[in-house]
Computed example of a mutant assay.
Amino acid sequence: MMESNIFNAIGMAGLDPAILFLVLLVLLIGAFVIIILQGKRLKNLERKYSKFMQGKEAESLEEEIVGLFHDNRMIRSENEKNRKDIININKRLNNSFQKIGLEKYDAFSQNGGKLSFALCMLDENDNGFLLNSVHNSDGMNYSYSKEIKAGISDVELSKDEKRALDKALESTNR
Rank of each mutant, 00 (worst) to 15 (best):
K40F: 06
G55N: 15
E46F: 06
L68S: 08
K104N: 04
L115I: 01
R41M: 06
I89M: 10
K51Y: 05
L68H: 07
I87R: 04
D106K: 06
R92V: 03
S96M: 15
Q38S: 06
K56Q: 13
N79G: 03
K51E: 11
F97I: 02
I75R: 04
R73W: 06
R92L: 08
S50P: 00
S116Y: 04
G39F: 13
E64S: 13
K48A: 06
L42E: 06
Y105T: 02
E62D: 13
E78S: 09
S50M: 09
S60W: 01
I35P: 00
M53I: 09
I34R: 09
G55M: 11
E78V: 12
E46Q: 09
I87N: 11
L45T: 12
I65F: 14
N94D: 13
M74E: 15
R76W: 05
L102H: 04
I86E: 02
I87M: 09
I75N: 10
K99N: 03
N95V: 14
F32C: 14
G112H: 05
G113F: 00
S77F: 14
S109F: 10
F97Y: 01
D106T: 03
Q54I: 05
F52H: 15
H70E: 14
N82L: 11
M53Q: 04
I86W: 04
N79R: 01
V33A: 12
K40L: 03
F108E: 05
E63V: 14
G67Q: 07
G112T: 02
L37M: 08
I75P: 09
R47Q: 15
E62M: 14
G113V: 00
N44G: 06
S77L: 08
K104E: 11
D106N: 03
E59V: 11
S109N: 06
E57K: 15
I35D: 01
M74D: 11
G112I: 05
Q110T: 08
L93S: 09
M74A: 07
K84D: 14
E78I: 10
F108I: 01
K81I: 11
F117A: 06
M74T: 11
E62A: 06
Y49M: 05
